[in-house]
């Protein structure tokens, strides 16, 4: 079932990232995603980055479909199916959100007065949704160091006591997820990670996005730190489009 939805508002977030807002009468929970069809170009999984009256997808241009998508204007239509995937658990109390690159898009729906954010990116102009956190709850980390701390995401983690939070939510490149996992493992804190793998069907049958026999599209994309602990493929191997297993 393909939904055809009019873009009500477009927002340019960074030089390479824009958000498209649309009205969609569906209940979506934090962490879920949709498959966005760009006719003639392809279909891509995208997390939903706003779940209020207006829903939103946040697009980073990296391939044919997303380059086409990011050029759409208000009044144009997007075509999508979903929502899919297991959402993050309901946040309660103080939470910590750790987003690398465009990973913050899938965490954005968890941002609130009790959320602290570690927002990491390669360059300072790529920091995403940082301004949506309360000023004193924003920890920016960039590799160029023009804004925030200079370094990698773990440097941001040095600034907080992870056990102060009821739950830590993490999204970004898998190497980053693995680094965060290694750092917080063993601490007394719940944590959930949103995984990104090469996804084709979105409905749990094609085996493209699988990790240790779990389908990221239906069993995930969110997994608890305990679940990741049992996955030998986490942070080590992934499947190419052909299904060939390669090192990450």
């Amino acid at each position: 079932m393909i939904n055809h939805l009019k873009i009500e508002r477009k927002e340019v977030n960074t030089p390479t990232v824009s958000s498209l807002y649309f009205r969609w009468d569906r209940k979506v929970k934090p962490g879920q995603f949709v498959m966005v069809w760009v006719p003639g170009f392809g279909e891509v999984p995208m997390s939903i980055s706003s779940i209020g009256d207006l829903k939103c997808i946040t697009v980073k241009a990296y391939g044919d479909s997303t380059r086409k998508l990011i050029r759409l204007k208000e009044g144009d239509f997007i075509h999508l199916r979903g929502p899919y995937g297991r959402p993050f658990s309901e946040p309660e109390g103080d939470i910590l959100l750790i987003g690398g690159g465009s990973g913050m898009a899938s965490l954005r729906t968890l941002i609130g007065p009790r959320a602290t954010g570690i927002i990491a990116s390669r360059t300072s102009d790529e920091l995403l949704f940082s301004e949506e956190f309360e000023k004193e709850k924003r920890i920016e980390v960039t590799e160029d160091g023009i804004r925030g701390l200079k370094g990698l995401v773990l440097m941001g983690l040095d600034q907080v006591n992870v056990e102060d939070y009821s739950c830590i939510y993490v999204c970004g490149p898998e190497k980053m997820l693995k680094a965060v996992y290694e750092r917080i493992r063993g601490h007394k804190v719940r944590a959930e990670f949103s995984l990104e793998r090469s996804m084709k069907c979105g409905i749990g049958i094609c085996d493209s996005c699988s990790i240790n026999g779990y389908q990221v599209c239906v069993d995930g994309p969110t997994f608890s730190i305990e679940e990741l602990g049992e996955m030998t493929e986490f942070g080590t191997t992934k499947l190419l489009s052909s299904g060939r297993r390669v090192q990450i």
């Binding site: 749990g204 049958i205 094609c206 085996d207 699988s210 026999g213 389908q215 499947l239």
Partner: peptide
């Protein structure tokens, strides 16, 4: 054709 491209998934099924 369903869930059977990689070994871990087949094992789980």
């Amino acid at each position: 054709g369903i869930l059977d491209e990689n070994g871990y998934t087949m094992k789980r099924v």
